[in-house]
């Protein structure tokens, strides 16, 4: 994930089903005043650092989702939210923010590429 205006890059490296390494890179522009780097580094502390105040609740969700996936309670992951039968084939549409359309598209793409040439 690249944030151009503040010269910051976040790189997500999947390691295992239950482990992801998140790298955060800050960049210093050649010849730019220190204040710009100071801002980049501040953003990195406030948002990306493990000590960030805004990250904890997201991480809690990831951990709970992981615990749910690891349980035997239900073999299905429900991604039906805001499903519409006319989704397939549509491009660049704007929908409600809680729609799981993008997850459905991801699995449609997976299905397409896994069966390509079969």
């Amino acid at each position: 994930m690249l944030k151009g205006p503040i010269q910051l890059l976040r790189l997500f490296k999947p390691i295992a089903a239950n482990k992801t390494l998140v790298e955060s890179w800050t960049f210093r522009l050649v010849g730019a005043p220190d204040l710009l780097l100071e801002r980049t580094v501040m953003y990195n502390r406030l948002i990306n650092a493990p000590t960030s105040v805004v990250g904890h609740d997201d991480l809690e969700i990831y951990e709970r989702a992981q615990a749910g996936l690891a349980s035997d309670g239900n073999e299905w992951v429900n991604i039906q939210r805001l499903y519409s039968a006319d989704e397939p084939g549509q491009r660049n549409v704007v929908v409600d923010g809680t729609s799981e359309w993008q997850m459905r598209n991801q699995f449609r793409a997976w299905s397409k590429f896994m069966t390509m040439g079969a």
Partner: peptide, 20 residues
Amino acid sequence: KLTTSLMYEDKLLLKIRIDR
């Protein structure tokens, strides 16, 4: 200020941390 830290917070940010 110019190198990465886990945190470098002034009193306002510490207050936000506590309020949260």
